[in-house]
Structure formats: C-alpha cells, structure tokens
C-alpha cells in the first residue's frame, strides 16, 4: 500500500502547491497599485530585461545565421533560395523568437529571480518586511512579476529582429542571395496579425508562465542551501517544459487546421 500512499501524498502536495501559487499570483496581480512600486518595477525591468539583452542578441544572431545556412543548402536544391527571407522570418517570428527567448529567459532571469527571492526568504528579509507591515507580495513579488511580463515580449521581438539580420548576413552577404528578394518576399509573405502579433501573444503567455514559476518557486522554497538550489533547478526545468508544452497548444490554436 506504500506506493498508493506515496502517490496520494504527492498529488495532495502538488495540488496544495498549485493553490499557494494561485494565491500568490492573485496577491501580486491585485495588490493595490501604488506609485511607490513604479521605480521598483523599472529597476527590475533593468535587471531582468536590459541585463538579458546580451544573451538574447548573441543567440538571436547565431540562430538566424544557422537557419540561413541550413535553409540555403536545402532551398537551393529546388532553386528556391529567394524564399530564404520568409523562411527565416516566419520561423523566427512564429516559433523560435518566442520559444528560445522564453527558454533563455528562464535560464538567465528566471533562475536569478528564484535564487534571489529564496535567499530573501532564507535570510528572513521577507519575514522582516511582513513585520514592518510591508506586504512582500506587493513590495518584492509584484514588481518582479510585472517586469518579467513587460520585458519578455520585447526581448522576443529583439531576438527575431536580430535573427533576421543574422540570416541576412549569411544568406545575402555571404552566400549571395539577392538582397531585394530577401526583403521583398519576406515583406509580402509575413502577415502582421497572423505572424507578428501571434508571436507577441505567445511570448506574453510564456512571460506569464515563466515569471510566475520563477517567483513562486523562490517564494515557496525551503529556506536552506539545498532547498534553494532545488528550487532554482525546478524553475528552469518546469518553465522550459511549460513553455514547450504551451507552445504546441498555442501553435495548434493559432496556426492549426482552419
């Protein structure tokens, strides 16, 4: 009977954690907005957004370059290297931009958020905020949450833009695809609502999920060195899986059979 008990306990634990995560999200989203929080949010935007720029730009350029290289070798067999532009742009805007940005964001900013909040808990900073009659949800969680949601779509757009330039670098400047066809076929193929906006919507959803997981894992961590390291790992693993799973669902909804 032991394993039945085990499954039961695990399930109850998971459900309870979901409940706590929901309560935390509610507290962070619906805490009375305060003007004092705006500078805090801007500071967090710097930490999670601006400081993630380097990794996002470098990855974007390389992914764009690799796609142009791979795409060129395949398309050229069919004499279709003119379609390189739309191929690079569509893959980036629809899939790679939002998804890879979310994965990188989870590794770069999400893990940092979890570790930071976990350590604040371990060093009793969260408790002391509460005892100073300052709600940690409003003061610590909410600014980080909003910063994540604002930063990630912007990072995804930057990722896609830089990737398209990287594709240009390899496809046009190196392999000799015609620059005019790279840009003009891209322009005529890419649809604003269907491709660009849907990519941004995806990235907003990923931002919500990744930031939520990162902050909750920190907030709910066991305040020991082991607990925090575990929470940080879980943040990266859970948010990566959630992003990939949700991406399939969103893609099916957005681009699926009509």
């Amino acid at each position: 009977m032991n394993w039945v008990q085990h499954i039961g306990r695990q399930t109850i634990g998971r459900v309870a954690a979901c409940g706590r995560a929901g309560v935390m999200l509610f507290g962070a989203l619906f805490a009375l907005p305060s003007f004092k929080n705006i500078p805090l949010t801007i500071r967090q935007l710097y930490v999670v957004g601006v400081q993630s720029l380097a990794i996002i730009i470098v990855s974007g350029v390389f992914i764009g370059m690799v796609m142009a290289l791979q795409g060129y070798t395949i398309l050229t067999d069919y004499g279709a290297e003119g379609s390189l532009g739309p191929m690079v742009a569509l893959s980036l805007l629809r899939e790679l931009g939002p998804v890879v940005t979310a994965l990188l964001f989870a590794g770069r900013a999400g893990s940092a958020l979890t570790a930071e909040i976990g350590l604040m808990k371990a060093t009793e900073q969260l408790s002391s905020l509460e005892m100073m009659a300052v709600d940690p949800l409003r003061r610590v969680v909410a600014p980080r949450f909003w910063a994540g949601i604002i930063a990630m779509p912007m990072l995804a757009i930057i990722f896609s833009a830089v990737g398209i330039l990287g594709g240009h670098l390899v496809g046009v400047d190196w392999l000799g695809v015609d620059a005019g066809s790279y840009w003009s076929i891209m322009q005529s193929t890419v649809d604003w609502d269907k491709d660009v906006i849907n990519g941004v919507i995806k990235s907003l959803v990923f931002a919500l999920v990744v930031t939520w997981i990162a902050i909750f894992k920190g907030y709910d961590s066991i305040p020991t060195s082991e607990g925090i390291s575990q929470a940080t790992t879980q943040t990266v693993v859970f948010s990566s899986l959630a992003v990939l799973g949700l991406d399939f669902v969103l893609t099916a909804l957005m681009f699926g059979i009509e």
Binding site: T123, E124, Q125, S127, S128, E130, M131, M132, A133, D135
Partner: peptide
Amino acid sequence: LYKTRRRMSMLFQSGALFT
C-alpha cells in the same frame, strides 16, 4: 493586522537587513 504591526517591531537573529 498590518496597522498593528506598525506598533510592533522585530529584531531577527540574522538582522535581516536588505542586502
């Protein structure tokens, strides 16, 4: 409760200063 907490204060073992 938050209002009452302004009248009490707690010194944590670690100090719990904001780092």
